[in-house]
Structure formats: C-alpha cells, structure tokens
Amino acid sequence: MTDQRISFKEMCARFDVTPRTLRYYEYIELLSPHKEGRARFYGPREVARMTLILRGRRFGFSLEEIRQWLLIYDKQGSREQYQVWIAMADRQLAVLDQQIADLQAARTDLAQLRETGMAELAALDRPG
C-alpha cells in the first residue's frame, strides 16, 4: 500500500462518516475505491471526491445533484456543464436564503415568546 492510499476505516474516521454511508456512496457510484480482496483503499481522487460530496451535502444538494457536480470536477467542464452548475448553485442559494429567513423569523418569534414569559414570571413575583 502506498502512502497516498487510506483504508476504509481511515476514510470513515477522516470524514466522520459511518461505514454504511461510505459503502452507500460506493454503491451509487459516487466513490470507486481500489479493492484488494475484500479490503478497500482510497487514493487522493476518492478523498477529493468525498470532500466534494460532503460539501455538497452541507449545501443541501441531493446526491444526484452532487453526481452532476462531480462530473464537472472529474474532467474539464464544458460551457454547458458550468452553466448547469451555476443554475444548480443559484437554485440552492435561493433555498438556503429561504431557510435563513425562516430561521430568523422563528428565532424572533421565540425571543418574543420568551420575553412574554419573563414578563409573566416577573408579574407572578410581584406582591399582590
């Protein structure tokens, strides 16, 4: 084994994923480890792909969208591929912006409800 390859267990630890997740990504062909018998080894290409997969998941992309994204990174992307990628990114940015707005609204509502509770608690503490 060369220094650039890591084992299945090391890959799980490096990316803090379960063995089931790693096997699933292999099953759906997002990753293609080198196999020696039953052992799997991951080289720099697979490590880079896993980094992109997890980044895509963090951004909220589906696994199919991540597959399309990886196609661009596997080879020199065409103009059309980059246009598709930019459109995907724009759609996901809109989704994230909406989630941020929803979370901010929920936080504001919760903070107001907390303040109401604090006022009611203070009123209960006042002599009568």
Rank of each mutant, 00 (worst) to 15 (best):
R126F: 03
P33L: 06
R55A: 10
I66A: 08
L110C: 10
L63N: 03
I72G: 04
A105F: 15
L31Q: 01
E64T: 10
R58M: 13
I72L: 07
D90C: 05
E65P: 01
G43F: 06
A94Y: 02
Q98F: 09
M50E: 03
L93I: 10
S32L: 14
P44V: 12
I72Q: 07
R20E: 15
L52T: 02
W69Q: 03
A106Q: 12
R5K: 14
Y24F: 10
S7Y: 02
R23H: 08
D16C: 00
Y24E: 05
L113C: 08
D102I: 07
I6D: 04
Y73L: 01
Q4H: 13
G77P: 03
Q4T: 14
R20D: 14
R14M: 03
W69A: 02
K35D: 09
A48I: 01
M88V: 01
L52E: 02
V95E: 06
Q112D: 14
I53R: 01
G128R: 13
L93V: 07
R49C: 03
Q76N: 13
R38L: 11
E36F: 04
I66M: 01
V84M: 10
I66R: 03
P44L: 13
R38S: 11
A13S: 12
F8Q: 08
I6Y: 08
A39Y: 15
S62D: 04
D97T: 00
C12D: 08
D90S: 10
P127D: 14
A48V: 00
P127T: 15
P33E: 08
W85R: 06
I86K: 00
V17N: 03
D3S: 15
T18R: 00
K75E: 15
I53C: 09
L22N: 04
R49S: 01
K9Q: 14
R45G: 07
E65Y: 04
A87S: 09
T108D: 09
F61Y: 02
Q68L: 14
F8V: 01
I72H: 07
R79F: 13
L113S: 11
P127M: 15
P44S: 13
A122W: 08
E29R: 04
Y27Q: 15
R20C: 09
P44E: 13
R23I: 04
L124N: 05
M118W: 00
E80H: 10
T21A: 11
R5F: 11
G43I: 01
L54S: 01
R55Q: 11
G77L: 03
K35N: 05
R49N: 08
E36D: 13
D97K: 05
E120G: 09
I100V: 13
V17W: 05
F59K: 05
K9D: 12
T51S: 11
E36V: 12
R57W: 08
S32H: 15
A105V: 11
A48E: 12
F61R: 02
A105S: 12
G128E: 14
A106G: 06
A119I: 03
L124I: 09
L30K: 05
I66N: 06
E120K: 04
E10V: 08
L124H: 07
R57G: 08
D102Q: 11
Y27N: 15
L121Y: 03
K75N: 13
E46N: 07
E10H: 09
L103I: 12
E26W: 00
D125M: 11
I100Y: 01
R114F: 00
R20K: 08
M88C: 10
Q104T: 10
R79Q: 14
R67C: 09
I86Q: 09
